[in-house]
């Protein structure tokens, strides 16, 4: 990797200061995406701002109608959390399906959603569960957060502090992993939330998005049969070595069906 200056600030204010002073600085959370990218010399940050010494980013708490997970909480800790397992088991299962055991021991929720990798799992949960992203500046609704390929609503000097997941009535996640990398070729979160039925798709498009056709169909009848007639438009979907857009379009239906079936539909 290229050379950079390393910082390990102890407060969010210090993070802001460093970011403000260095245009080319990047935030280091778990590093599961950033470090491999830097090793390939595909990124050249001038400074790395390591969040690991900042208190208060690694908590999981039950706030009654939601659970709030700090940006630096590792995937393994979400997967193993009693709070998460009780309130939103689908979220714990999703976390447990990310990467491999060692990736889950390092990777963080904040890092995952800040990057908005089209193939990562968490975006499906954030969007599907109608979560709220708390940053050092504001709160952003999930529907307003994912903007495109590696693109989010986060502004310069803004970083994810925590994510608030409202407790759904029920939710399930089904994933078709890339056999080589184990990232999501297609992942679908189906959730019945206070704000209605939500179906969020990751892996298939430039970023996570809601599958409104499926939501509409399931709204009429929450059953796998309701999905039978739906054919997803492949036009804007990802197309790569592992899956054509046509195949991805098909897999969205299959994964949605599996999630629905898990929920008794």
């Amino acid at each position: 990797m290229y050379e950079f200056n390393y910082h390990r600030p102890t407060s969010l204010e210090d993070v802001s200061e460093i970011l403000a002073a260095n245009d080319e600085a990047k935030i280091l959370a778990g590093g599961m995406t950033l470090l491999p990218t830097m090793k390939m010399r595909l990124a050249q940050p001038s400074d790395l701002v390591d969040l690991s010494a900042i208190d208060g980013l690694s908590d999981i708490s039950d706030t009654g109608d939601a659970i709030e997970i700090g940006a630096m909480v590792r995937h393994a800790d979400v997967a193993g959390s009693d709070i998460v397992q009780n309130a939103i088991p689908a979220l714990a299962e999703l976390a447990n399906s990310i990467g491999d055991a060692q990736v889950r021991n390092r990777g963080t929720l904040g890092g995952s959603i800040a990057n908005s990798d089209p193939a990562s799992d968490y975006p499906a949960a954030v969007l599907g569960l109608d979560a709220v992203i708390k940053t050092n500046k504001r709160e952003i609704a999930a529907d307003d957060y994912f903007k495109g390929l590696f693109e989010t609503a986060l502004e310069a000097n803004e970083l994810v502090v925590s994510v608030k997941f409202p407790k759904p009535k029920k939710a399930a996640y089904a994933k078709f992993p890339n056999p080589a990398s184990r990232y999501a070729v297609v992942g679908v979160m189906v959730a019945e939330t206070d704000s209605g039925l939500r179906v969020a798709v990751t892996g298939a498009g430039a970023c996570a998005y809601r599958a409104t056709e499926i939501e509409a169909a399931l709204g009429k009848s929450f059953s796998t049969d309701a999905l039978a007639g739906i054919s997803m438009d492949a036009a804007d979907l990802n197309d790569d070595l592992h899956a054509s857009s046509e195949y991805r379009a098909h897999l969205i239906g299959v994964m949605a069906g599996r999630a629905v079936s898990t929920l008794g539909g």
Binding site: L28, G31, M32, P36, K39, D50, S52, A101, Q102, R106
Partner: peptide, 26 residues
């Protein structure tokens, strides 16, 4: 060099991690 193979797995504070995907300073 892509965090796939696990030949570099060590324990960091009691947990297994891939030491090729961590900076020494971390």
């Amino acid at each position: 060099d892509t965090s796939q193979c696990g030949a570099c797995v060590i324990h960091l504070d009691g947990r297994s991690v891939k030491s090729c995907t961590m900076l020494a300073v971390q």
